[in-house]
Amino acid sequence: MIKALTAAVGISVGQPASWLPAAAAVNETNWTVQTLEAFADTLVPGERRFSGDVPIAGVVQGPGAVQAGAVQVLQSPDLPLFPFLPGIAALLNTRATAYAAIRLIWLPVTRPAFVGLSFAHRTALVSSLFDANDLDRQIWQMLSLLTSLAFDSASHLDTSAAVEQHHSGLAWLGFPPPDTDGLWRFSQFSYGRALADLHPKTTASGSPA
C-alpha cells in the first residue's frame, strides 16, 4: 500500500517542493504539521491541547488522533512518506482554498487554508475527497488509514510500552494491559466457547510450530 501511495503522490502531486509557494518556505514545516493535524482531527476529533490550538477544532471532549500521535505516524522513518508530506499538505490547502472560494468563505492568511475552515466545512471537504471520481482519492485513503492506526493501535509505539505510557487512543478504547510476563491472554472466548483445540506443537509464545 505504501508503494501505491508513493506512486499516487508522484502522479497526482509531483515533487513536494513544486507545490509550496516560495513565501511559505520558511514556515513549511509548521504549516505542514498544522494541516496534517487538522486533517487528523477531522477524522478522529479530540479536545484542544491548549488555548488557541487552531488545528484542533475542539468539538469533542477526550483525546483524538492528534493526541494519539497521528503526525508521528505520518512522519515515521519506517515509511517513505515524509518527503511528500509538504506536497500533500499543500494539495489539501489548495482544495480548501477552492472550497472556500466557491462558498464565499473568508480564510485567515495567518494559517493554512484547511486549518482556517470550521469543523463543519473541514468535514464536508474531507468527505468529498473520498468520492469515487476524485483523482487524489488514494492519497486521502492512505492518510486516513495511518491516522486511524495511530489512534486505534498506537502503531508507532511498542504495544506494551504504549499501554504502560497510557497512550490516549488505547486508553480511550479500553485496551487491556498484558499479563505480568508481557503477553496478552484472554480468559473468555469471543464466541463463548473454544472453536478449536490448541495444536500440540504450538510454542510457548503462542506461535504455530
Score class of each variant (00 low, 15 high):
R193D: 04
G174R: 06
R185W: 03
L43I: 15
S76F: 14
T110Y: 13
W19V: 03
G52N: 02
L170A: 00
R111V: 15
F39T: 00
R122T: 03
P45V: 02
G10P: 14
D158I: 03
G14Y: 15
A70M: 07
A8I: 06
W19R: 13
V66E: 14
G69W: 10
L170C: 01
Q67T: 08
R193G: 01
A24D: 15
A25M: 09
G10K: 11
P63S: 09
T147W: 13
L36P: 10
V163Y: 08
L170I: 01
W172C: 01
S187A: 11
S128W: 07
A24K: 11
P77L: 02
Q188Y: 10
A154I: 05
A38C: 11
T35Q: 03
T159H: 09
A171I: 03
F175H: 08
T32P: 06
D152S: 05
A25L: 11
L117Q: 06
Y191A: 06
F189V: 00
P86Y: 03
V13E: 02
S76Q: 05
R122Q: 14
L85W: 14
T6R: 12
A196S: 11
F39A: 00
S160K: 11
R122E: 04
V71P: 14
L145R: 05
V33C: 01
V9H: 11
W172Q: 08
A17M: 07
A17E: 13
R95W: 15
L149Y: 12
L145Y: 12
A194E: 12
T159C: 01
N27V: 14
A124I: 09
E164Q: 14
P77G: 03
V73K: 08
R95Y: 15
A154K: 05
A113H: 09
G174E: 12
P86H: 04
L129T: 05
T42H: 05
T123P: 01
P178I: 04
R122K: 13
D134Y: 14
F82C: 01
P177H: 08
R111C: 09
A38K: 13
Q188M: 02
G52I: 01
A38D: 06
L183D: 06
A171N: 12
E37N: 01
H166M: 04
T97K: 12
A100Y: 04
A17N: 10
G58A: 02
V115P: 15
F114L: 00
P178S: 03
V71Q: 09
L135H: 09
S148D: 09
T123K: 10
V109K: 11
S127P: 00
R95S: 03
A124P: 13
A100T: 08
P77V: 08
